[in-house]
Design a protein around this nucleic acid. Structure first.
Lengths: 148, 148
DNA sequence: TTAAACCTTCATGTGTACTTCAAGGCAAGG
DNA sequence: CCTTGCCTTGAAGTACACATGAAGGTTTAA
């Protein structure tokens, strides 16, 4: 498929796909007779992988290092492990921050709700939607942003 | 406390604190007689809140809108709700992506481990550390990055 | 055969979120 | 008195991750 189809399939812009190839986040892409990129499913999967890792907050630079290590044929087991471990740490931390912020907002939303008329059900739905994910509420609402 | 102490306490640079104040992410900070910022715990909490939301992926712009709404005295209940709802959506999505990426890396790490000598215990520890957080593994390891 | 709709490379522009620099003020220690 | 070390504002610079534009090539459809 051409780059536009790949773009539509992945949700990544054509320019970004070219950029990823140049930065070696995805392998060199085969070209057609006239020099156009011919993108197969392997490349699509790689693009999707990049998208996931980017969404998870991994920088282009780290992602490139990570991929280089995995693509290399030498025995760089140790470095691979170290890099995985490092990235897992970063992601767990982000995950924690994110969860804290979500909990915080949910708490605020619930508190907020307590002081409102109960005619509007949207908030209840929202609350129900997220209820299973809220594990703990902040011990105090200390950011000074609660007017209610 | 002065801005340097606040910086050390929050892990946010002095320049960033000034920037946050200018962008109204934190309230106007009191000044001493000679014009230096005198930062109290309320400001510290605000800075921490900003840090958390930033870490969770909220943009400066959205964060400012959010804070403006909460600081305003008018009855903007509806907008506050909408903004909270919007941000919760964004964060839940990010959370999902992040979890997917973490699961992916954990799966890779486990798979990886299966093919290694069991003399090195670090990976077991890492595995143990994160085991409770891994809820599901990717159905296939389709990014082409598994050499092992 | 001419326009539309793709594509290419290379260069430059853009938005975000700060960081760094320049120029200067205040307070304490030697 | 002068250096050190903190602070101030305002302007300009930087890094990242692309987006956009220029100049041109190919293929398809009218």
């Amino acid at each position: 498929m051409n780059i536009k189809e790949a773009s539509e399939k992945t949700g990544v812009s054509s320019a970004a796909i070219r950029y990823y190839e140049k930065e070696s986040l995805i392998p060199p892409i085969d070209r057609t007779a006239v020099g156009n990129r011919d993108i197969d499913d392997r490349i699509i999967r790689r693009i999707t992988f990049v998208t996931q890792m980017r969404a998870a907050g991994m920088s282009i630079e780290n992602l490139r290092r990570y991929i280089e290590l995995f693509d290399a044929q030498e025995d760089n087991t140790k470095e691979q492990k170290a890099l995985l471990q490092e990235q897992l740490g970063v992601m767990e931390e982000k995950h924690g921050d994110l969860q804290a912020a979500i909990d915080h907002l949910n708490y605020k939303l619930n508190h907020f709700y307590d002081h409102m008329e109960s005619t509007e059900q949207e908030l209840r739905e929202l609350e129900r939607q997220h209820a299973d994910k809220v594990t703990q509420k902040p011990t105090e609402d200390g950011d000074g942003l609660t007017n209610y």
